[in-house]
Amino acid sequence: MIELQGVTKTYRKGRVEVPALRGVDLCIEEGEHVALVGPSGAGKSTLLYLIGLMEEPTSGSVRLFGEETARLTDAERSRLRGRTIGFVFQAFNLVPQLKAWQNVALPLHYQRRPRREQRERALAMLERVGLADRAEHYPSELSGGEEQRVAIARAMVIEPRLILADEPTGNLDRASGRVVLELLETAVEGGATLVIVTHDPEVAARAGRVVRVVDGRVARG
């Protein structure tokens, strides 16, 4: 359901060109749990952003759910992202001006769901991640682990087909990390596909498949 063929990505800053990906071929099936590992700067995050339609490849094709994404307009890409893909970042990336429940409800807001439904579903999701009592708090009033659980609630509130997590446990202690990971794995049990970038061998070990990214390429084995 995710098919990448000959994908390259080169960042350009003035005259300097940084090749982040140098030709990636990758297939991920529906319901798979994949860990992306590799040295720092190898291009893992870049790969994740490309799969999540957060940016466009310099060349090559990204097919998602059987669709060639290069053909999609911005509105269609946004719609796809908003309804089927849940993102979890290492740096949480909550909106500081919004309360916890409003952060969780944000994707529903862009699906134009009624406000009541937004709030109910967000609160239910917060309950599932164990933060029912922090719904009215702002991100700056939460601990890192709590923030990441809010971010996971935001990713899962849309019942995504695909969850993309970029070092979700990187900033957390072992216990909080485990909670976060378990939350993500429940989603996989529910049938979602999970792609998780990690430096933690323990986290990688729990994945169904491990993909190594080295120097902008997928290394076999």
Binding site: D74, R79, R83, L106, P107, Y110, Q111
Partner: peptide, 16 residues
Amino acid sequence: IRVLGIRRAVGASRQD
């Protein structure tokens, strides 16, 4: 712009 990035990640289109 950062917040916009987050919003875009959760599905906001440019028009939104």
